[in-house]
Nucleic acid binder design. Structure first.
Lengths: 330, 330
DNA sequence: CTGAAAGCGCTTACAG
DNA sequence: CTGAAAGCGCTTACAG
């Protein structure tokens, strides 16, 4: 059994109250007893029980973070800045993934709520504005990349998709495919909207057979390619939902003897580390990952501290040109 | 403020004890009141406080998982099986990374202990057997890939390294480099031991300039290559600490105009998803990732339930031949 | 089958 | 500056 505050009190010949105050640097306590108690507690290996403390103070210093997919480095990279801000403010993190499964996301939220966490950040939510109906549960929730939710930080997916498409069109590509995530979420619909609007703007006809579903991961990209290469008229460029999809796409293209970028250009979305190191390196739309996590956490801390009104924030993405794109051939 | 058991009791005109029993499916309670209370609680949106429950029952249904690096998919893949076993046994997971930093690992352990978690799994520990000295803190700890710790599950790194080296030597390679993780951990030393023993066995002289440090990630692999390509006599094959390192290595080789596998063979360790999808696909040593996490969690549950003696377990790795390796040229 | 009471390990007004 | 007491939200022997 762990050592309790009473054990320390007994050994120090003081009351539990005094031990508590000593350990919490309370002002009204003599420097002497404070130091004595602190040393004794340490030597006994005393570690306070967070559960007991949270219960009595009615607050918690833990933030819950739910990410869509551990295996997508985008979400994992987000954790770095979330952790930086959280630790700097003496919060720690409870991280979990819901594997792009709505049920699991709901369960995760329940389990966070049972723990009475101070607040929750969800990245890649499938519930989206659904969190609004949870407002009777009094816990602040901030979403990343769901701009329709009032407390959220997002990269501008529409602008990002437009950049990618303008760039490809500018290279002379007319048959441009889009490999989606396969789920009709906001973040998906905005990319698709960008895809369509740029084509329309340049009077390029929209061919729905060039819009194929992926799954947000490598496998989805691979499957998408086999559909695209079976088309009577193949695409000369492929815009992908994200970098993981793009890696699957590039891999499948190369396996089928289709050189990137000579025979087909590929553009991703996210700018993961692997985008730089894949061969060929990947042209992509960089999401401001660090800023996303940073601002989301600051926003959550604001909500925790003051219930203050905060709006949804939108950050600008950036086109990063690398070796997976080239001029259209003819 | 969240709804408490008292709120439900008042509204249901029963005592808090009865509410508690109804919600916990206690046997000695009438089916009728049980159902009534359960429905009322649900309609009121009552969610029990885990902190309060843990405090009074003196146990927790949460397992802490500390992994060396979120950005290395090896660790993240481990989470899948850990989660499977944990959820099947009604435990949930508290996951965190210590970013290959010993201080952070220590802090993480403290923070886990404050939460009085049921047990802890550490993958890629830098503390290793150091956890033994923490035994006064009464929490079971299972390590993954640290076979010198009594409660651990590991892949056989020595055997894995030997497989990789025997395979390369069998292809006719004599100048084989090793890119390490850069830290003198067990898991590293065993690979090095395997590297050396195979060379010795085949009477190939050991050239220490071919042993260069990486950092367990892509960047380390890239840096290692610039050192290797500056050698007067270049290696014809490179054995890498892990797949992430190998990706850095392959990338740097290709950037410097060195074709893989024609000019240089590369072997990784882990068999991450990306090993299949990188171009060229990576020959590697497969760690039984799912089994590692699975057995570690079962072992931890045994410890939680019975304090029973458990030994350290070693699982066999497997050589996966792909396209990053070829016969030596001359 | 149900309720009143004690207690888990803390913190914090309230006295002194 | 220190201690006794109450209480956070639960569970669970102990009575009835």
């Amino acid at each position: 059994m762990p050592i309790t505050i009473k054990d320390v009190a007994k050994k120090a010949n003081v009351s539990p109250s005094t031990v508590s105050r000593a350990l919490n640097d309370h002002p009204r306590i003599s420097t002497e007893t404070k130091k004595q108690v602190q040393e004794l507690a340490k030597s006994m290996g005393y570690v306070p029980s967070q559960a007991a403390r949270n219960l009595v103070t009615q607050r918690s210093a833990t933030i819950g973070v739910a990410v869509a997919d551990y295996l997508d480095p985008f979400y994992v990279s987000l954790l770095a800045s979330i952790e930086d801000v959280a630790l700097a403010n003496n919060y720690d993190l409870f991280v979990s993934s819901f594997y792009r499964d709505r049920r699991r996301e709901e369960k995760l939220f329940d389990s966070f709520y049972e723990k009475r966490l101070a607040g929750i950040i969800v990245a890649g939510s499938l519930i989206d504005e659904g969190y609004l109906s949870q407002e009777n549960r009094s816990v602040p929730v901030v979403l990343i990349n769901c701009f329709s939710y009032p407390f959220s930080v997002s990269a501008d997916k529409l602008a990002g998709a437009k950049m990618a498409m303008e760039y490809l069109v500018g290279l002379g590509h007319h048959r441009i495919a889009y490999v989606s995530q396969g789920k009709p979420l906001n973040t998906e619909l905005l990319r698709l909207q960008g895809y369509r609007s740029v084509l329309r703007k340049h009077d390029i006809p929209i061919d729905d057979s060039l819009i194929v579903p992926g799954d947000g991961g490598v496998i989805g990209g691979i499957k998408a390619v086999s559909r695209l290469l079976d088309l009577p008229e193949k695409p000369s460029a492929i815009f992908c939902f994200n970098d993981m999809t793009a890696i699957g796409v590039m891999n499948a293209l190369q396996k089928r003897g289709c050189q990137v970028p000579r025979d087909c250009s590929v553009v991703g979305f996210d700018d993961l580390e692997i985008a730089t190191y894949y061969h060929p390196s990947l042209t992509t739309i960089r999401q401001p990952i660090y800023r996303l996590g940073y601002r989301a956490t600051e926003m959550l801390l604001d909500l925790i501290r003051s219930d203050g009104e905060v709006g949804s924030e939108i950050l600008e993405p950036e086109l990063i040109v690398r070796d997976s794109t080239a001029r259209a051939q003819d």
